[in-house]
Design a protein around this nucleic acid. Sequence first.
DNA 1: CGGGCGCGTAAAAAAGGCGTAAAGAGCGTT
DNA 2: AACGCTCTTTACGCCTTTTTTACGCGCCCG
Lengths: 235, 235
Amino acid sequence: MTTSHLILLIEDDIQTRRFLKSSLNHRGWQTVEADNGKTGLAMLNSENPDLVILDLGLPDMDGIAVTRRLRQLSDLPILILSARSQEQNKIMALDAGADDYLTKPFGSGELHARLQALMRRISRGIANQEIFETGQLRVDLTRRKVFVGENEVRITPIEFRLLSILIRHAGLVVTHRQLLQEVWGAEHIHDQHYLRIYLGQLRHKLEINPARPRYLLTEMGVGYRLAVDDHSSQD
Amino acid sequence: MTTSHLILLIEDDIQTRRFLKSSLNHRGWQTVEADNGKTGLAMLNSENPDLVILDLGLPDMDGIAVTRRLRQLSDLPILILSARSQEQNKIMALDAGADDYLTKPFGSGELHARLQALMRRISRGIANQEIFETGQLRVDLTRRKVFVGENEVRITPIEFRLLSILIRHAGLVVTHRQLLQEVWGAEHIHDQHYLRIYLGQLRHKLEINPARPRYLLTEMGVGYRLAVDDHSSQD
DNA sequence: CGGGCGCGTAAAAAAGGCGTAAAGAGCGTT
DNA sequence: AACGCTCTTTACGCCTTTTTTACGCGCCCG
């Protein structure tokens, strides 16, 4: 159930802050507040919250920078608040490590739903699964071993990291940017040919017919996705 | 506190104001009224409404200016009322941050439908949900998948971005400018033929009869609107 | 009646993304 | 020092997507 749940609000607008506070307290969450990015970051250590709600339109710091810093300092769930005019920033914030977002204006029901979903996602710990399995494919994430049917497949370090990321987001699209960022680091964010080559190698090793992949699917112009088992398959 | 639904009417014409007030009260909304832009803006703070209905033809201030100021002061939903002669102003108001419009004369049913769409965005959070569904159409926004009935439909990146924007504003009008700006960037703001072509492609893929669209509706001279099914059985 | 305007459609040309092969570079191990 | 493995770089052909171009229709207004 809902245990402690202290929420850190980083929001400059008094009105919004008041609304958030009352709405959250009403639902049984504790809150601490900061009206700018700097003190917000400072409170991360002093208050030790369970979750952060961050407004992108802060006066003192760029919202993206705050997000990135938060992510550097902890793995806490981060919920972004953005005004309608900040669509682009919102996407950048998600890329920088935010977990979800709300576009203003929003009601308390919506806020509550987002928080619930966020909490559920975190506590369920999808990321911590030890063995992933779909179709003929089986991946032991802690032993770093991969099987197709009965046979073990040799996997290189980079291949394994790529595969792990796709497994962690199984069924979802992972953007080029995300993959490159996590495997090769920020300075190779534009080297998409790496992805083509390594995805090609992985397909060669994992797919029955690499030309018609069943697991490692391409999302044109966006990224890649690991297909999750949907009971029937041909090809 | 959250379900009060107080509407601020900014409207100079007594007759229209009376009609609006009675029509709204009848539906269970509270109203406060201002007969000019200045007091209207002042009441924003004093009355703390949940939504604003603004007539563009005010005596004291330019409607666009009022809209812009409202947007500066808050993120409240704004519904514009405009006379038929104010076609151009209407578009400018939408671009300045208004959410939807009604052209006089209008009936209470029409008014009600627009308000429903606006309110739904807030209370149910249509703007942020992961799966959008209406009629035969189902869009999974995080998985980037689109279904018509049982069948998945292949969607290109640009098509998906357009569709996402319309979904984010489901039930509301989105101006040409807004769409072009968000998808192609500021330098293509006048290339409306892009919209014609891509909306055509989307209709071809999503509509049962592309020539008589049920979902992707054209607002002549203004923009496009994604129609939503109203599950409520009133009116 | 005709011409302009906004919208929708079709089909082309252009651009860009993707997959594959293969050769070169780096690095640890033997 | 040579070998083997992995990672990086380069090149090319195919295919999808995007952009360009052209035309047809309905409507309002002169």
